[in-house]
């Protein structure tokens, strides 16, 4: 699963360099420059990738018993 996450993050980084949108003047919804719309998509894509990573590749060794034990004694 970690390999999938790494590939997803690398894809985001490559897609971020959108040279094909550089000089495009079209507007989305009549007001949003296409280059900006595309990068809003990148932001949403990043949120999805991180949701995916947190759901399916959360480092399980992080939540060790000693951490949980120390948490049980603390107050919010």
């Amino acid at each position: 699963m970690r390999l999938v996450i790494i590939l997803m993050v690398l894809s985001l980084l490559v897609l971020h360099q959108d040279f094909w949108n550089w000089n495009r003047e079209e507007l989305s919804f009549g007001f949003l420059p296409i280059g900006l719309t595309y990068h809003i998509g990148i932001s949403l894509g990043a949120a999805f990738v991180w949701w995916f990573a947190c759901t399916f590749a959360w480092p399980s060794e992080i939540d060790t018993p000693d951490e949980q034990a120390s948490e049980s004694g603390e107050q919010a």
Binding site: V9, G35, A46, A47, P59
Partner: peptide, 25 residues
Amino acid sequence: IGVYGMLASSSGIIHSLCFFLIGVK
């Protein structure tokens, strides 16, 4: 508008990457 891609969308990827890989550890 290029400023958004230059720093905002890239930060969306990289900041969370740092929180995930470094912050948690």
